[in-house]
Each structure stands twice: as structure tokens, then as C-alpha cells.
Design a protein around this nucleic acid. Structure first.
Length: 848
RNA sequence: GGGCGCAUAGCUCAGCGGAAGAGCACUUGCCUUACAAGCAAGGGGUCGUAGGUUCGAACCCUACUGCGCCCACCA
């Protein structure tokens, strides 16, 4: 157990900080999506810990009971065992075996991601403690009249032989058929249409609109229902749209939601004509025992033989609800189920976000949330499964119904039995933020960590889980919402933004990448793609690039330490530091405040990007190179440089630690001699005022060096080849101190006695021009030089035209803010002088 | 049927009213004493189309086109 990661040093006065983390995949695999999510959570938590908060995770597992049950059923089937014959208790044992088998693997994988969690078994769901929480909340809801039992039409999954909830139904467009058929005969006949012909066996009426003249004479009469010999009434109902189809609707109350409502209004019988596996049953016809799809064909052909088929449209494209777990079309089925009355719960859940007590990141996602909680149907919570929390209701021999609380003895004796159903998996998952903290007991954890600080999860689970936790939390915890912030991320996609799926073959195994490139490289890649609320593509190439970054960081630290870098007690006075020192310190200062603000706002991608660019483009490419010159100078200068190197690296490694914990731990402890960067202090801005003048001089040096390098490259000089050069105008611009740096980085040496200027370049800087004369001691590539100058000239002329156009526009001068006008004016002047300079150079060039 | 989002360099994405950006890929030259998993230099975009607002639009508005997602009990 890695307790030191989150329980050690709990001595600060910082408020507690807790995070709810979603569970890994029930199959036991660490999916790349989980690596993505857990990386974000770990970044948040590690930063908080460095800031001195007492940070706690509430890890979850096994919440998806239907999926677990399906998996174990499949496993049993592979062994040739029908789980129904196994019996309930033996089945539950199997599930526990399954958990033992896969649970451990998941823990190992999480640890490799660098996560620091108490994975002790007590925190896992389905344990006694959590069952107690489930029982307590059920009883409370029951006593408050928010749980009721009713016969309703529910979504039935014939494959699972269980109810599923509304949100577990996926609507998909499928090619079906629309069959119109005649009921009754002659004058007393009506044509109705359906996509599910087999349901006609359960029809108990035909409905028409009350004002529909075509059918007025039939209302109240009875017509014959084919194949069954039954007589069914024609009823008038407002629900029927006279414009649609024939204006007449067959009514199957037990197998269609609309028809159920019509059936209730007209007090129609509601025969169920299918069994729990979706086979026709109890109709007394030859179709009994047929599967529903088989029956669809058989019934249609039987009607055709009787000449009752009037019209067929095939294919007929329409939307059909499918079970999100087992993928087959769901069947509306009439059955007795337990429901939660969600009205007051959903209202509270909506209000908590509406009035700002809970913030959703990114805020655009709030609308989806409101649409959902504001239009919620009552929640069917009973499931006809064996794995899950059983409904704590006992039935007595004389029709008694008793809800048993956690400290109550269930009634025993002849004829008493517990409800066979288990609760919807989201019922217990909704309790997560407080049941994991020991609720219903009044524990120290609960007092300290509820409400939790932040929930990080995918937007795909907003309705399933987030909204449930909101409802349950607010209800159980006296109106205190379970978290202060909800951070929604997108899905990890492949390199081309395609959804990852096993069938598309574009899934990735994060463990393989971790082995090849390192865990930090994977984490860095995932963090770099983590823009709130949007999907994130990932590819192996990008993980490789992240590994390069880690290597770069390693080498930079190695270089600094080889040269004696050390973290100073306190930095030397600014007057003892060079422009380069001041510049890099100011940049680091800026980085601290940028990264801190971005992480505070859960902008992982931007924070990671800022760290990447500072490390590579500023620290490595410029400061390390400049520091070589300063180190060569020796003495105090070198000593100060070692301190700046140490200081900046220390800050940088601490800033990077939440994202790439492993390499930063190694480098930071080596550099500082500190115990562990995990418990190091999170960098804070020092409040130092940036030295603008130093920054400007460094920018000038960078430009000068780049221009010389560009010239060298154009002239085909090898990077290592040193060339004598005279630098003119340096002192006038206050850059005299930087000459050694320019010479070192641009690889130009002091002119010697035989110096002959064979080429020269001029670099325009703010405040003046530096001229560089080079002794190439050989032919100068005049064509290349001309080409380059012409390109620069074209750019400058374009700039002049653009700025001129603005400055000659009176409306612009009149209406644009003064600072914008000044900026454009300055740009125009620069362009003007550039053009003159380049033109002079071109004229001076020998003809070639 | 309702709602939301996205169209910017070859690919993946930032930028969201005042000079078109990054990473990868690409071209050229380099084993320059931290790093070839590297260094240096460079090429590449009328910011989906058409209108409008504005001194000024990738950015705001309208329409259109093409993608993607969510929600939904019309036979």
C-alpha cells in the first residue's frame, strides 16, 4: 500500500480535497480511455498534494452489475453450464471468483500509471458496508413515498431476461417493414399499419380520432381481429393523428407505450403475448412458442393467405430501441416493477447546477444536463438479475409488503420471502461519493471529505452516473451536492479521430505503449490531448514524441548537473545576474503562473503545451546554450549560472511532476537531494517584476544569431565550420556583453590579421541595425544571397502595403484605438527601413 | 422529429475582433564537448461556401454545404 502518497504529512491547514474516480473496465482491461481519465485525475490530485492539501481518491469498481452478470454468464456458457441451473448463490460465488481474478490485475495496471490510491478491499462496492448504504437509502426513499411498485410498460431485454432503464436503450435506424392490413370485413373493416405484425395477436382495440368522419360510424362497434377469432372494439382517442397513414391505429396495450396509455384510458384488457425470452405465448394460436422475429413473418404470411395484406413497404427505415448491453431490439413489456419517483430529486439535481453550487466543465455541457434532469421519467430500479443488491422488500403470506432497514430483522416465518429482484446498478453507484466514505455511519472521512471537490469523468456517462450521484447525494446528505466541480472529458480516438472499437481494429493497448515508451510518455501524450469536453485523438507516433520530450528533459538535467548546477538557498541579487539569467527566470516565473492557472481550470492540454514549449524552445534551445558561455567564463559568473540552472530546473521539474511523475522523481531527487518530489512544494509565483529590457536584449540576440545562421545555411556553410566575422553596431545597441554568446551560438570567430570581408549581412533590430561582415575566404553564393534578400524584400513590401492601407484610411485613424494605430505606425516604419536596407544590399551585390 | 458541436498547413489540433500558430510529417545541411529519441535552416494555408455587421473578421450575425454527437413512444 502506498499510503505515504496521500496520508503522510497531513499537517497543513489546507482544506481537504477529494476526488471521485470512475471504475476501470469491468472486463479487467485497462482501456486507453481509463488511462486518459486517470491521468487527468492523478494530475489534479498530485498538484493538490504538493499544495499541501489532504487529498483523497474514492476509487470505484464493479458498478456495472449487468455487464458483470453478462460476462460471467458467458464464461459459464463456455463451460457448458446454464447459469439458471446453477442457482443464485453459486452464481454469486462465481462472480466473486471473477473479481478476485481480475481485480488484482487492474490494481497493478493502475499503479503503473503512477496513481496513488488506497486500493483496499473495503472501498470496493458490493461489500457489506455499501450494501448497508443501499439499504439505508432505499428505506429512506420508501418511507418518504419516493419508491413505489407499479405495473408498467418497461424496456425488456429478452437476451438479458431483465428490465433495462430508459438510458440503456439506444435508438438505431434499421430497415424494417411497414405492413398495412385489414381488420374486419366489408363495411365494418379498417386498415391499420404496423412495423411489428406479430403484435396484432395482442391487439385489444382499434383506435381512431374522435372527429374523423371516415370512421365515425364504427366507433363503439366491434370488429373481428384476424387469426384469433376475437372481437375487438373501435375506440375514439385524441392521440391518433388522422393525417398519418389510414388514420386508424391498432392497439396492443401490453407491448407498446402509446397503446398502453390508450389502453388505460379506455379500460382495455392488456394481454401479454410474449414470454421473458421474447417468444409468442398465451395467445392460443399456432404461433405460440415462436420467436418474435419468426412470428413476424409467420403472422404476415398467414394474413396474406386470408387476403388481408393491403400494402407492404419494405425496406421501411425507422428507429428501433436496442439494448445498449446486449444489442438486441428491446421489447416493451408489461410487468410489475419498482420505481423511484424522480420529480423532487431531479429538481434538486438541476437546481444545484443552475444556482452555481456545482460547476460543470466545460459549461456548454450544462445544457445537456438540464435537458435531461428536467425531463426525467420515473426510474425503473428493479432488475431481474442475480448479481447486485437485492431489493430489501419482504412479502408476507397475506399480501404484506415490508421494507426492511439496515438495522432491522427481516420478517421470518411461513410464507415470508424477499423480493427476487436486484437493484439497478446505477442505484448503488449513485451513492458513491458518500457510501465510500462510510455513510450511513457518521465517520471522520465523511465529515472531512464530503462534499468531494471534483468528479472527472466522460461526457458519455453524464446521465448514467453523474446525474444519479447528484440526485442521491443531494437527497441523502441534506441538500449538499456530492461535488463542487464536474469535469467532463471526451473519448480517446485513433489518430484520425475515429472511434476506437474492436471491430474496426483500431484499439490500442496502453500497457504495450507503456512498455515501449514508458508510462510518463503515455501520460504526457494523454495530458497533452486533454482539452475539456472534446474527444482526443492519440497515436503511437505521438507517444514516441512524448518519449523524446522525456529524454530531452533527462539530458538537460544531466547537462546541468554535470556542470555543477545546484538549487540555491536563495537566488543572487539581480544585479549579479546576466540578461540571459534574468530572462529565463522571468520566463519561469510566467510559466509558474500560467501552468497554475491552467491546471486550476482543468486545462490539461494547454498546461502541458506551455510546459513543453518552455522546456524545449526556451530552456534547452536558448538558455542552456547561453549558459555554456557563462560557465566558460568561470568564477562568480559560472557560480551564479549554476544557481540559475538549478533554480529553474527545480521549478520546472516540480511543475512537470503531476504529469510525468516517474522521471521527475528521479531527476528532482538527484538534482536537489530532496526526499521526494511527490511531497515537494508546488511552485508559487515569487512576485518578481519581469525585466523587460533584459528580455528585449535577449530577443535581439536571438534574432541576430538566427539571421547569421540563416545566412550560413543559405551559403551552404557547415554548422560546425567557424567563420571569422566583424560585428558592427553592437555596442550602440547595448549588446556588447552578448558578443561572446553570439559568437558561440552563431559560430563566428574574432577577426584575425588577414581578415577580408567577403560578405556582409545587416540585421534590423528595434533601435538600430547590427552589421555582420564575414570572411568566407572563398566564393560567395551570390545567387542564394540575392534570392534570400528578394524574399525578405517581398515580405517587407507586403507589410508596407498592408500598413499603408490602414494608415491612409481616415476611418481607421478616426475609430481605431490609439495603441492600435501606434502599433501599425511602428510596423510601417520598420517595414520602410527594412526595404531601404535590403534594396541597398541588393544594389551592392555584384552582378552574377 | 428536436437539440448541440465541428469545418484553419499533408495529418491531428490551438487561436475566437487588431501582424495566420503548434506537434507530427516534409525539404536541405550537420555525429557542433546534454541530447541523432538530437541540432540548425527552410517549404507549405484567399482559416468550408455565399452574403452581412465593422475602420478592421479565421474570430460576430444570417443562409447554405459536409461531417460528428446527444435526445426522442408517432402506428
Amino acid at each position: 500500500m502506498e499510503a505515504e502518497y496521500f496520508t503522510a504529512d497531513v499537517t497543513s491547514d489546507k482544506p481537504p480535497f477529494s476526488v471521485v474516480i470512475p471504475p476501470p473496465n469491468v472486463t479487467g482491461n485497462l482501456h486507453i480511455g481509463h488511462a486518459y481519465e486517470h491521468t487527468q485525475i492523478d494530475i489534479i490530485t498530485r498538484r493538490r498534494r504538493m499544495q499541501g492539501y489532504e487529498a483523497l481518491w474514492l476509487p470505484g469498481m464493479d458498478h456495472a452489475s449487468i455487464a458483470v452478470q453478462t460476462l460471467v454468464e458467458r464464461q459459464l456458457r463456455d463451460e457448458g453450464i446454464d447459469h439458471r441451473e446453477l442457482g443464485r448463490e453459486a452464481f454469486v460465488d462465481r462472480v466473486w471468483q471473477w473479481k478476485e481474478q481480475y481485480g488484482g490485475a487492474i490494481l497493478g495496471q493502475m499503479k503503473r500509471l503512477g496513481e496513488s490510491v488506497d486500493w483496499s478491499r473495503e472501498r470496493f462496492t458490493m461489500d457489506a458496508g455499501l450494501s448497508r448504504a443501499v439499504q439505508t437509502i432505499f428505506k429512506k426513499l420508501y418511507d418518504d413515498g419516493l419508491i413505489y411498485r407499479a405495473e408498467r410498460l418497461v424496456n425488456w431485454s429478452p437476451a438479458l431476461r431483465s428490465t433495462i432503464s430508459d438510458i440503456e436503450v439506444e435508438h438505431r435506424e434499421v430497415d424494417g417493414e411497414l405492413v398495412s392490413m385489414r381488420y374486419g370485413d366489408g363495411e365494418n373493416s379498417i386498415v391499420v399499419a404496423t412495423t411489428r405484425v406479430e403484435t396484432m395477436l395482442g391487439d385489444t382495440a382499434v383506435a381512431v380520432h374522435p372527429d374523423d368522419e371516415r370512421y365515425r360510424h364504427l366507433i363503439g362497434t366491434e370488429i373481428e381481429l384476424p387469426l384469433t377469432g376475437r372481437k375487438i372494439p373501435v375506440v375514439a382517442d385524441e392521440h391518433v393523428d388522422p393525417q398519418f397513414g389510414t388514420g386508424a391505429v391498432k392497439v396492443t396495450p401490453a407491448h407498446d407505450p402509446n397503446d398502453f396509455e390508450i389502453g388505460k384510458r379506455h379500460d382495455l384488457p392488456m394481454p401479454t403475448i410474449m414470454d421473458e425470452q421474447g417468444r409468442i405465448a398465451h395467445t392460443g394460436t399456432q404461433f405460440d412458442g415462436m420467436d418474435r422475429f419468426e412470428a413476424r413473418v409467420a403472422v404476415r404470411e398467414a394474413l396474406r393467405e386470408q387476403g388481408r395484406i393491403v400494402e407492404e413497404k419494405r425496406p421501411y427505415r425507422h428507429s428501433v430501441g436496442h439494448s445498449s448491453r446486449s444489442k438486441e431490439p428491446i421489447e416493451p413489456r408489461l410487468s410489475l416493477q419498482w420505481f423511484v419517483k424522480v420529480g423532487p430529486l431531479a429538481k434538486a439535481a438541476g437546481d444545484a447546477v443552475r444556482d452555481g453550487r456545482v460547476a460543470i466543465h466545460p459549461p456548454e455541457m450544462s445544457k445537456r444536463y438540464f435537458d435531461w434532469v428536467d425531463n426525467l421519467h420515473d426510474w425503473a430500479i428493479s432488475r431481474q438479475l442475480w448479481w447486485g443488491h437485492r431489493i430489501p422488500i419482504w412479502y408476507g403470506p397475506n399480501g404484506e409488503v415490508v421494507c426492511v432497514g439496515p438495522d432491522e430483522e427481516p420478517p421470518s416465518g411461513e410464507g415470508w420471502h424477499q423480493d427476487e429482484d436486484v437493484l439497478d446498478t446505477w442505484f448503488s453507484s449513485g451513492l458513491w461519493p458518500f457510501s465510500t466514505l462510510g455513510w450511513p455511519e457518521d465517520t471522520p472521512d465523511l465529515r472531512r471529505f464530503y462534499p468531494t471537490s471534483v468528479l472527472v469523468t466522460g461526457y458519455d456517462i453524464l446521465f448514467f452516473w453523474v446525474a444519479r450521484m447528484m440526485m442521491m447525494g443531494l437527497y441523502a446528505m441534506d441538500g449538499v451536492a456530492p461535488f463542487k466541480a464536474i469535469v467532463l472529458h471526451g473519448m480517446v480516438r485513433d489518430a484520425h479521430g475515429k472511434k476506437m472499437s474492436k471491430s474496426a481494429g483500431n484499439t490500442v493497448d496502453p500497457l504495450e505503449w507503456m512498455d515501449t515508451y514508458g508510462t510518463d510518455a503515455l501520460r504526457f501524450t494523454l495530458a497533452r490531448g486533454a482539452n475539456p469536453g472534446t474527444d482526443s485523438p492519440i497515436s503511437e507516433e505521438w507517444v514516441a514524441a512524448s518519449r523524446s520530450f522525456c529524454t530531452k528533459l533527462f539530458n538537460a538535467t544531466k547537462f546541468a548537473m554535470m556542470n555543477g548546477a545546484r538549487v540555491p538557498e536563495r537566488l543572487a541579487d539581480r544585479s549579479e545576474l546576466t540578461d540571459a539569467d534574468r530572462w529565463v527566470l522571468d520566463r519561469a516565473e510566467q510559466l509558474v503562473s500560467d501552468v497554475d492557472a491552467l491546471l486550476e481550470d482543468f486545462q490539461f492540454a494547454k498546461a502541458t503545451e506551455a510546459l513543453y514549449h518552455f522546456t524545449w524552445d526556451e530552456f534547452c534551445d536558448w538558455y542552456l546554450e547561453l549558459s555554456k558561455v557563462q560557465l566558460d567564463a568561470g568564477g562568480e559568473r559560472a557560480e551564479r549560472t549554476r544557481e540559475v540552472l538549478g533554480y529553474v530546473l527545480d521549478v520546472l521539474l516540480r511543475l512537470l511532476h503531476p504529469t510525468i511523475p516517474f522521471i521527475t522523481e528521479t531527476l528532482w531527487t538527484a538534482l536537489t537531494g530532496g526526499e521526494s518530489v511527490v511531497v515537494a512544494e508546488w511552485p508559487k509565483p515569487t512576485g518578481a517584476v519581469a525585466d523587460e529590457a533584459a528580455a528585449e536584449r535577449i530577443a535581439a540576440v536571438q534574432k541576430l544569431i538566427t539571421e547569421i545562421r540563416r545566412f550560413r545555411s543559405d551559403q551552404g556553410l557547415k554548422p560546425g565550420q567557424r567563420v571569422a566575422a566583424k560585428l558592427g553596431g553592437v555596442a550602440e545597441l547595448g549588446l556588447a556583453d552578448h558578443v561572446p554568446a553570439v559568437r558561440s551560438l552563431a559560430r563566428v570567430t574574432e577577426p584575425t590579421d588577414g581578415f577580408t570581408s567577403s560578405a556582409s549581412i545587416e540585421v534590423g533590430l528595434t533601435g538600430g541595425t547590427v552589421s555582420v561582415e564575414l570572411d568566407l575566404s572563398g566564393a560567395v553564393d551570390i545567387a542564394a544571397e540575392r534570392k534570400r534578400l528578394e524574399k525578405d524584400l517581398a515580405a517587407a513590401e507586403k507589410e508596407l502595403t498592408g500598413t499603408d492601407k490602414k494608415l491612409t484610411n481616415p476611418a481607421f485613424l478616426d475609430k481605431a484605438p490609439a495603441e492600435v494605430v501606434d502599433k501599425i505606425k511602428a510596423r510601417r516604419e520598420t517595414a520602410q527601413s527594412e526595404i531601404e536596407r535590403i534594396k541597398a544590399r541588393l544594389e551592392a551585390l555584384p552582378q552574377g
